[in-house]
Amino acid sequence: MSSLTEMVAKAHASGDYNGLIELIPYAQVIGVNCERFGDEMVFRLPRNPDNLGNPTLPAIHGGVIAAFMELSAAFQVLLQTSTPELPKIIDFSVDYMRAGLDRDTFAMCQLERQGRRVTNCSVIAWQEKRTEPIATARAHFLVKPVDS
């Protein structure tokens, strides 16, 4: 068993995912964290003045929202597929629906298709209501098969 697989198992057992978040520096820079509710993972980007872009509203920088969603997807793939390595991003696409205001942002991911090497993941990000997303995204990741 690889050390990453062990880390994932330990995180699931303890409910503390910070050790995994620390693997990706930018996830720490913007302050991503996650919590498990039954089988569902909810990712959270706490309100942080360093994440703001346009000072007028003020609004969270669009790039930060996209990065939060991409990293959420990467962690979801990692947590759900027991891959021995961090997934590699192939492509990413985001649609922005509403401005992300200066408050907590949440994201949930769904693995739409898990192939042998490539996994497709969709992401929805919201602040007030999940039915009123601030953005939706999808990504493809190259995932190392468990048995190789």
């Binding site: 520096p25 991409e70 990293l71």
Partner: peptide, 8 residues
């Protein structure tokens, strides 16, 4: 994936 997210 060291710069994951930062590129975005």
């Amino acid at each position: 994936y060291l710069l994951g997210g930062a590129l975005t």
